[in-house]
Design a protein around this nucleic acid. Sequence first.
DNA 1: TTGTAGGCGTTATCAT
DNA 2: ATGATAACGCCTACAA
Lengths: 351, 351
Amino acid sequence: MADEKPAASTRKRRGSGRATIHDVARLAQVGSITVSRYLKQPAQVSTELGARIAAAVAQLHYVPNLVAGGLASTHSRIVGMVIPNISGPIFANTIQSFSDTLSAHGYQLLLASSYFSQEQEESAVRAFLGWSPAALVVTGPFHSKATEKMLAEAQIPVVETWDYRPRRKAIQVGFSNVEVGLQQARYLLDKGYRRIAFVQNSVAGDLSALDRRDGYAQAMAQAGLKPWTFIPTEQAPFDAGRQAFEALALRKKPLEAIIFANDNLAAGALLAGQRAGIAMPDQCALMGFGDYAISPLLLPSLTTIRPPAREIGEIAALRILEALGAVPLDGKHANARLNRLTCEVIARESA
Amino acid sequence: MADEKPAASTRKRRGSGRATIHDVARLAQVGSITVSRYLKQPAQVSTELGARIAAAVAQLHYVPNLVAGGLASTHSRIVGMVIPNISGPIFANTIQSFSDTLSAHGYQLLLASSYFSQEQEESAVRAFLGWSPAALVVTGPFHSKATEKMLAEAQIPVVETWDYRPRRKAIQVGFSNVEVGLQQARYLLDKGYRRIAFVQNSVAGDLSALDRRDGYAQAMAQAGLKPWTFIPTEQAPFDAGRQAFEALALRKKPLEAIIFANDNLAAGALLAGQRAGIAMPDQCALMGFGDYAISPLLLPSLTTIRPPAREIGEIAALRILEALGAVPLDGKHANARLNRLTCEVIARESA
DNA sequence: TTGTAGGCGTTATCAT
DNA sequence: ATGATAACGCCTACAA
């Protein structure tokens, strides 16, 4: 009774060897399509057959073959996400909340990182498309031509996260980096700083930081001030921050305040300032972006911008689930193509 | 009757609408199996046909349907990974290096997080198995019975990471947490501390930390000393650390040194010590586990243990790729079932 | 080196 | 409510 090969055909030449829907159907003495229906919409199957099927499923340890189901129905419960990196301080919360929201509704996450390279993004998108994913999530609006084409032609929901461009076709879940640059500059201008510089990221491909720089430049122009941009050559973020600080704050006529493309650069600058005995923010104010875990712990603690990382992941997942009909449409934000989130200024000691 | 439509036939009732291998074959005027071979092993196809096929692929923007391929071959290039969390400070580097190593060889990562819950792990493993993954990676040796059974019966490589149990069946890539507990206690004993306590994690399910506690207790017993364990009730790690510090270091006869289940707990204690004006390490030494990003920046900087997070991910991927024949077997560690890594004591100021 | 036949496990379609 | 049949797109086995 225990395991006397219930239904598996005796000499399968191919196949996985696992129980199939036909094995279940035979054991439950129903048609296999009824098993399929029972698993998807139990309400459409009579209680009696349902019970027999459930018993057979349990006895055979039946696990539906999602690959076969995907082929037959031409759509899967896989969602692909391409993100610049997994282990950095920025995107981890987005991935986590995205994955959690998806898996709560039976969808699986296929993940790849691009390291801000459009080529890597393109190859990940191509590979993902081979799985007929239910939806695709990418980071930002900057893609290779081929990627754009693939995303446009895929007949599935596509979400662009971590930026906001109302005129693009994909669902947008993010914030305007230009707006953030304005926010940063205005915060410092309101505090009375006038000689304000912006330090870019030495990592090529981080194009969002350039938008923040543009916002900063815009705010400066509106205030009748000259923008001042510095591009570090050092690659490691702490070193790049130090380099920028030395170039901007240790000159004859030092800058009064510096905005950095991210908190790691700012942290490098802050440590350099400590060593040089510069009083911060009095002699030079520093402002970052990202609100990394280290930022509240630095001395002085780092004034920065907190992006809605977790929120981005969750909203992206909800919009996808809504578009797929996996989640009901309620609430006034339901199924919105444009999801404009905002960043928060975290005012601490450094500015 | 033979429809001579080059690409998409006009009235497909099912199907994705994308170009298939047959469309490519027709356009290139070859058999579809030749296209299949060309895509997998170009060397087996003549240069002439290869060129025709390549042209057709490009013209049709053909993307192989991996779902169909997976069904036909009963194995996919998907690898599933279940990890306690994505956004915490511990596992992100493992995920990143694992994903990078896999994707460099054309494999895709299906990811889910368990939050240290065996139920969530089980449901993720079950869902992953539906995709006929090429391999499966889980964290640690502690699984539900059903998970154990599924892993044992899946005819694929299974890797257990972040721990090391030579007698288990799965491929092991990690370190002995008992050994780490010994390391921690011995480091403090060597420094002359005698009254040493261990603070557990308030997060249930982190069973590895209990192994470290056991190692600590073992070392204490060997030194003829009494172990002293504290279990915080506060849930947030910083709060739990503070609570432990107050209970252990601010008593009449305070402990001399405290080992924490992770760096966040230690950081919470350290900040509490600063506020209370306790000199560290002179009045009380603190030691963490994990070497989080904040740890070198604290004052005093935190002495801790650095686990080989990145290495775990990379070696896990390599062992899988070797087992699947995707990577040649060379080097004496090749294809080892037991991969015992070591943790490093990072000696800083706090102990 | 290239081609033919048939099956992988499920679901859509249509019929009862 | 339930079932028979035929795809879904590719790959294995075997043949030429």
